[in-house]
Amino acid sequence: MSSTPQCEAMAEDALLLRFGDAIDVAINAQVHAAARRLHARCPGLEIVPAYASLLLRFDPAQWPAREGRSPHEQLIDTVLAALQQADQEREADRQVDIPVLYGGECGPDLAEVAILTALSVEQVIARHAAASYRVAMLGFAPGFPYLLGLDPGLATPRRHDPRQRVPAGSVAIGGSQTGIYPAELPGGWRLIGRTPLRLFHVDAPTPSLLRPGDRVRFQPIDAATFERLAGAATP
């Protein structure tokens, strides 16, 4: 792959690897490729991907200072070596399809997004559902995916007046990104639809439907399908 990341000792037990300083599909792909290699080759690290960086949490007691090399320096040596090795086989990205009921009560800002982007409502839906997205990172709230890959023609500024309560499952556009609210939360992104799927469920074997690096597609559904899927998703 890839250029060598910049390494920054962030805390006693934390190292930050930085691959760039922009929200960019190619840089984020490097982040996830690196995360995958480190998962496979450096067990015992907690790996937290963001847009252009990876946080590594480690136990400094496992890396005692040796030959004048501090725990962080030894970890950097190990990590950079692991990132340099070629992949044996490239594991395919996980693909997750998210059904969405666009517009109406579920997407109260859809018409406004259409006006702001000078598109028809149908065009907004078609373009939003046509793209393939990448989960750049999860943050803001448990299971909230920041998705890269929005059609630039759909970029819409955030609302001036954020909502106190955005319903769980809301699919939204904020600037050049799109995302899904996993729970009822405050939020300023523009709501264009809603998924009946539960994105975050603490009692599920895998609590988050989405993981960093996953590929996501949205599938438009009608109200009857939404009801059926929502019934199936309720525990």
């Binding site: 934390a14 930050l16 300083d21 937290v48 963001a50 847009y51 252009a52 946080l55 943050g139 920041y146």
Partner: peptide, 10 residues
């Protein structure tokens, strides 16, 4: 102008 990165307690 920064993009979001990991933060920690402290």
């Amino acid at each position: 102008e920064l993009i979001s990165e990991a933060v920690l307690p402290g």
